[in-house]
Structures are given as C-alpha cells and as structure tokens.
Simulated scan of single mutants.
Amino acid sequence: MDDAVRFGVVGLGTQGTLYARLVSQGRAPALRLAAVCGSNPASRATDRHSALAAELGVPLFTDYTALLESGEVDAVVITTPHYEHPAFAIEALRRGVHTLLEKPAGVYTLQVERMLAAGAEHPDATLAMMFNQRANPLYSDLKRAIDSGLFGELRHSSWIITSWWRPDAYYASSPWRATWGGEGGGVLVNQAPHQLDLWQWLCGAPERVFARAQFGFRRDIPVEDEVNAVVDFGHGATGHFMTGTNDLVGTDRLELLFDRGKVLVEGSSRITTWLLNDDERTIARTMSPEDAAKAPSGALDLSTFWSSDSRDYASRWGEQHAAVLQNFGEHVLDGTPLLASGLDGLAQVKLANAMHLSAWTGRDVDLAHLDATQYLAELNSRIAAEGRYPTRE
C-alpha cells in the first residue's frame, strides 16, 4: 500500500465495469486494480465477467466473502443492487476493508444507520460515497464561492431536473427495475440521488419537506415517476425540487437566490452569476423615490445594481468518477479529506425517504425527527402489495 491501494470492484454492471477500466487505465493512480467480483457461477453474465477479468489481468471472484477474505484487496467499490449496498459494506468494514459505495447508500434510513454504526466500530476502515457530481468543476467552484460568503445568505433555491426520460422498454428490461421490493423506489432512488446530494451540499440540509408524487403517472410501474417537493432550509430559506422521468425534452436547471446575488446552472455545464453591488434589502431601502417609481414599469435599468458573468464547463466522460476514485485512494493512503462520506450518503437517503413519506401521508416531514420505523412500515406495505419480494427489516 505504499504506492497504491489494492482495489476490488464488486458488481460488474455498467458502473462496475467503468470503474474497473478507469483504475486499470491508470486514471486513478492511487488505486491498483487487484480483483473483480461478479455474478454467481450460474449467471448468464459469467462469461462476460470472465472475459473482462482476463482482459484486465486480474482474478474474478464469484463469492463476495471469498474476495474480502482473500487478502487480495485493501479496498472495494460496491456497485450491486441498491438494497445490498449497506449489507455488503458492513461485511467489508468488519474485515477492515475500505469501502466506496455507489449511490444510493441504501434504500431506507434504518439500514444506512446500521451501516454507519458498523463503520464507527471499525474506524480504521474508510466508508465513502461515489457522489461523482461533487467532482464536477462547476459544482466544486460554486461550492467554494458559496462557502466564501461571496453571495451572502441563501434565500431560495429551485432545481428542476427532468433530463432522464425513460421509455417503457427500459422498465421492462429487468424484473426488479422500478419496483418497491427490487429497486426500492423510482426516480428518487435511481436517477435523482446525485442532485439530492448536491442540493444539500450547496444549500445545507433541509429542516422540513412537503412532497407530492405521482406513482405510475406515465408508465406502468408502481413507483414514483414524478415528484414535486417544497423544503424549508431554516433561517427563512426555502426551496423547490422537481424531478421526473417523463419529459422527453428534459430540463436541468438549478437556481440559487442569495441576498447579495443569484446563480443559475443550466445542464450542469453552464453557470451564470449575478453579484449585487450591495445586500438586496439595502438597495431596496435606499433607492430614491424617483427611481422606485420607475421600477414597476421597467423604466429603471436594474442591471446597474449588479455585475454578471457566465462560464461553460466541459467534462470528459468518466472524469468525475475517476476523480472520486483517486480521492478515495488518497484518503486511504494519506488521509486526504473525502469528497463524500457515509454520512453524506445517509443525508441523501434521508431526504429521499422524507419526500416519499410526505407523499404517502400528505403531511410535512421533519428531517431531524424522521420516523424511520414508519417509513420502513410504509415501504414494506408496498413491497407486500407487489407480492414479488420479501419485506425488509
């Protein structure tokens, strides 16, 4: 481990294969690919997994425990189905194997909390999240600007993220997809976790949430395919989050309103900022009666009160994922601060759970006092109604 962390990839679907190739190609030099772990021997994908392992020159394991106890790896990334994430992480942490989790950290809060408790019992083993959008230079630059106080205090935020349209064939591609028992939910669990994480990373964790969701709105599925949520960040700041999988054109638009400026992010690749000459309230209070009379009609040029700037960001495919992999390896080697920890994974799952619970019950949900037991009971009632998967504990 003096030069690189011996790294195993668990789960060889699209994401796991990407991570194995990125590490093998040297795009995360703090890691060295040492093994991969795929499906059991009876799986139809075994031949593909064997071919991948041979191509990359590493052993293929079909038993996860055998990989952890082989002595071949110091760390793993887990890219298995959502419900398995916490249990797989716990097995790794108990053996002192550093763990990077694909999003989400789990499906429901109780299982993620159990995972964090296991991590606390084994503090020498790292638990990190693959929230790769935190490595997007646009968002990392924006985070630094917000934290510096450049824009002042947050007043409102709105994120419309509908740029992941899915056709019927997508949902029919696997029997577990878009089910409560197999996947754990719809857009909040599958597509939107990165934005739920980024939103809190930039704005802080909401205190309360009220949500309305459509279940099987435009597709023949039992889970949510459209969600509108209103949140209270505290200190007078509010927010709106809208997501869905039915918008063929799609929108990715984040607005952040502060008392000294405004930020607009479009497509997660273009950012426009407006920096006010003074606090907005000061501008309003000190404006002359003559200028104030011109404002409603548009006769007053309000642009004299701010300076604006726009910038486009480009990101090569896999670049953000490679950055998180490298950060994870550097943390294991020398303690470099993590881009995203297991606690960040819990925050994302908790917000998604709160949106579900609010939509199911029709009431506000207090994030600090989220009833995780009630959430699991509501989830299990839906799993039982499907009649295809066992309920969860």
Rank of each mutant, 00 (worst) to 15 (best):
G149V: 06
S140F: 00
W165V: 11
T179F: 00
I146V: 12
A178I: 06
S173Q: 09
W159K: 15
P175S: 09
L198P: 04
T162F: 00
I146L: 06
E113K: 13
Q133C: 07
Q195D: 15
W180F: 07
G184H: 01
S173K: 09
L127W: 01
P206F: 00
D141P: 09
D197W: 02
A178N: 13
I146A: 01
L110W: 01
V209I: 13
R177I: 08
A120W: 00
L202R: 05
D147A: 15
V112I: 10
G152P: 09
P206C: 05
A169H: 05
P167K: 04
G186C: 12
G186I: 07
W199C: 08
N136C: 04
A192P: 05
Y108P: 05
Q133T: 12
S163M: 04
H156T: 12
E183F: 00
G204N: 10
L110V: 15
R177S: 07
E153V: 15
L110P: 10
W176A: 11
Q195R: 13
E183I: 03
A172P: 15
R134D: 03
W199H: 09
W159F: 11
L196A: 11
A205E: 14
N136W: 01
W164C: 12
V187K: 07
Y139H: 03
Y170H: 14
I146Y: 01
E183K: 10
G184M: 01
F210Q: 12
D141N: 09
R144C: 06
E153P: 13
G184K: 02
W159Q: 15
H194N: 11
A205C: 14
H122S: 11
L202W: 02
E207V: 10
M130Q: 14
S173G: 10
T179P: 07
G185K: 03
C203N: 12
W159Y: 13
R208E: 05
E153M: 13
A205Q: 15
G182V: 07
R144I: 05
R155S: 12
M115S: 08
Q195H: 14
G204C: 10
A135P: 11
D141R: 06
C203K: 03
E113S: 07
R177N: 12
V187F: 00
Q195K: 14
A172C: 11
D197T: 11
T162P: 14
T179A: 03
A169C: 12
